[in-house]
Design a protein around this nucleic acid. Structure first.
Length: 262
DNA sequence: TCTTTATGGTGAG
DNA sequence: TCACCCTAAAGAT
């Protein structure tokens, strides 16, 4: 169940584990047989992350993977279990086995197909080529609530339901305000907040948005998920103690503090 | 052993 | 806005 930080982390891990290796690729489930046949025996060159999309590049072909809500990877250093009936793709090489389960997309794309995917995406705050100016441009003049705009991958690539709620809280922005009504300094603050939250997510391998000072001296592993966040799925605000509101915005449940965000 | 839920996205109406 | 796709784990019974 990944937002962009998980995707970028996977790209790094998989590139480190598999690049420059000749891979054995199979599709135990059968549904990705065409992709598996194309990749089997090829040497992986690199793995790129763009928003929530992954591109596995080999000399002759590029594999596009989108995990969707349910997709996940599992890695095994040694003695991998037999594939499950749902294992879509299994990569083996460099002493590692990596299984892909339940992805929304898992297909070979040609350069045109990759461009099509990338052209639909807004700037990715985790990428060096992600620019705040582009975020500002894509947000301007939109009338949808900012809470909905942050989930729109053509506005901003990689943010999901937790980061949008947490970033709006930290920047004290009311999620119901029209996206185009935000002042430049608000939009810029939103970008910086999202980028730093997501970078931390890549580093830690999990989403912790509250500041260490607020969490006391507890170690990272002892921070329970319920305490790591400001508003997502919370009942009351950790700052003002007021009730947290929730509503479907942009098709998903958004949580915010009406007292702190206005 | 059910039912529900989840950090996502698309295409039809 | 809704139905639907994909899977696994947690929660309810």
């Amino acid at each position: 169940m990944p937002e962009g930080h998980v995707i970028h982390r996977l790209a790094r891990e998989h590139q480190a584990a598999l690049a420059d290796e000749a891979l054995a690729v199979s599709s135990p489930q059968g549904r990705a047989r065409a992709a598996a046949d194309e990749l089997d025996g090829m040497t992986l060159l690199a793995v790129d992350a763009v928003g929530k999309h992954l591109f596995y590049r080999s000399v002759g072909a590029t594999l596009h993977v989108h995990l969707g809500l349910f997709g996940r990877f599992r890695s095994y250093r040694s003695d991998p279990p037999p594939p499950r009936p749902t294992t879509r793709l299994r990569f083996q090489g460099g002493g590692v086995t990596i299984d892909l389960l339940g992805p929304t997309d898992c297909r070979i794309v040609d350069p045109g197909g990759e461009d099509e995917i990338r052209d639909r995406l807004g700037p990715d705050p985790l990428r060096a080529d992600g620019e705040v100016e582009e975020f500002v441009r894509r947000l301007a003049r939109r009338r949808i609530p900012i809470g909905a705009a942050l989930l729109d991958q053509s506005v901003l690539a990689g943010v999901g339901n937790i980061f949008r709620a947490e970033a709006l809280f930290v920047t004290t922005i009311d999620p119901l305000r029209p996206a185009g009504s935000l002042r430049l300094e608000e939009t810029t603050a939103l970008w910086k907040t999202i980028r730093s939250m997501m970078r931390r997510g890549v580093r830690l391998g999990r989403i912790i948005t509250r500041e260490p000072a607020e969490l006391g001296a507890r170690s990272r592993s002892s921070i329970r998920s319920a305490n790591a966040l400001y508003v997502y799925k919370r009942q009351s605000c950790v700052r003002c103690r007021g009730p947290i509101a929730s509503a479907k915005i942009g098709g998903r449940s958004l949580y915010w503090c009406p007292g702190c965000q206005s």
